[in-house]
Design a protein around this nucleic acid. Structure first.
Lengths: 201, 201
DNA sequence: AAATCGAGACCGACCGGTCTGTTTCTTGTC
DNA sequence: GACAAGAAACAGACCGGTCGGTCTCGATTT
């Protein structure tokens, strides 16, 4: 583990705990057991670090949440697998994200004050939402609304459910509530599947 | 409007936009068109201001979200009214909360770094969750699980849905997505009601 | 005349970032 | 393999600016 990746990983934790703005260079330097010289030899600024931490965070997000998803065939089952990963592999990962989901922290704290940073964060959320929508569209036999519930609606429910669960979890760090919330989403999805089956019969 | 409440209301907006930590005394003083002397004549510290802003925020939250809820009789209809208020009166209120929900901002940014502040914020969330659960319990004929879905599960779904919708909304400020998400929650609740009716018949 | 209110100079601590100096590693030459 | 030369990596003093908070003092009210 070289110094650069040590700095990135320590920053990942600190940002997840205290946010970007509230984490000082001193905090980062102390956590990575280095100095100003050591830091600025690898990063041009704190913002430069931000983008590299964001990249690393995204990679970990994908590793955790998309784990084993390729082996699943049905689009709706892929979403279920994603939700299970989100609960059992991602949010639970206090090693990388001791303070909870990094992206929600960034999105909330940087929202209006640092638009050029927050824009980059938003892309991730749009990507997730688009992925959910794509899977849902593929999972339905036709693009037409089903049972009065459009895929847009289902997308929003699941997407917001994931965000809300993450905020909830970072509030009280209770795995029980997290489990309940995500299982409820899986159940919601499951009922859609069943109803769909009925229509096909 | 005296200076003290001017400071509180300007701080409310600034905290909603940029958070507590990232809002400087200078920002507050400039927004309230006063000086250090003016500020510290009414508040003992920035933390003191925090608690008074939190109180004011809560009062506004109640005014907006509980509006007309007493006129509604059925517990589940009360929740529906709450959700409608949340969407049409609360999150939309850019006058008081230009950056989105103040409490989510506080909860996320203060979470692990300022536990004694965040603890006070959490109380509000616990209160909302407890209120939802109480209404749901009262809305069901018995406390027993219904159709395999416990009131705990429904509570989590609606609670997290509200949180998620708020985060979503502060991300892209799109009323359309907000409308879709909350309507989906209302729909979810409505289906529960209908199924309940069927069981009673 | 006394009390309250508000303006703003001032304080030490800390912010992100620069710069200089030292140590450590890499590379070319014999 | 020995060794000098250069580059790269790192430590930490230092910089101007800003942080939250204090203090003095003039203005206003009662």
């Amino acid at each position: 583990m070289n110094l650069k990746s040590t700095i990135i990983h320590e920053s990942l934790k600190l940002f997840s705990l205290n946010g970007f703005s509230s984490t000082s260079m001193q905090d980062i330097i102390s956590a990575a057991k280095t100095s100003k010289g050591g830091f600025y030899n690898h990063f041009s600024s704190k913002e430069d670090l931000f983008f590299q931490v964001l990249d690393e965070g995204r990679q970990i997000w994908r590793e955790k949440n998309l784990y084993g998803i390729d082996e699943v065939k049905e689009p709706l089952d892929k979403i279920q697998k994603l939700l299970e990963n989100y609960k059992n592999r991602y949010l639970i990962d206090t090693e990388n994200f001791p303070g909870g989901c990094l992206f929600i922290m960034f999105a909330v704290e940087l929202g209006d004050s640092h638009p050029h940073l927050s824009r980059e964060v938003q892309k991730g959320f749009s990507g997730l939402k688009a992925m959910l929508k794509r899977l849902l569209d593929n999972g339905y036999p036709s693009t037409a609304a089903y049972n009065g519930i459009s895929t847009d609606t289902v997308t929003e429910i699941i997407f917001n459910g994931m965000l809300g669960a993450s905020v909830s979890y970072s509030l009280d760090k209770s795995y029980g509530a997290l489990d309940t919330s995500i299982n409820a989403l899986i159940d919601y999805l499951d009922k859609l599947k069943k109803n769909q089956k009925q229509e096909e019969d």
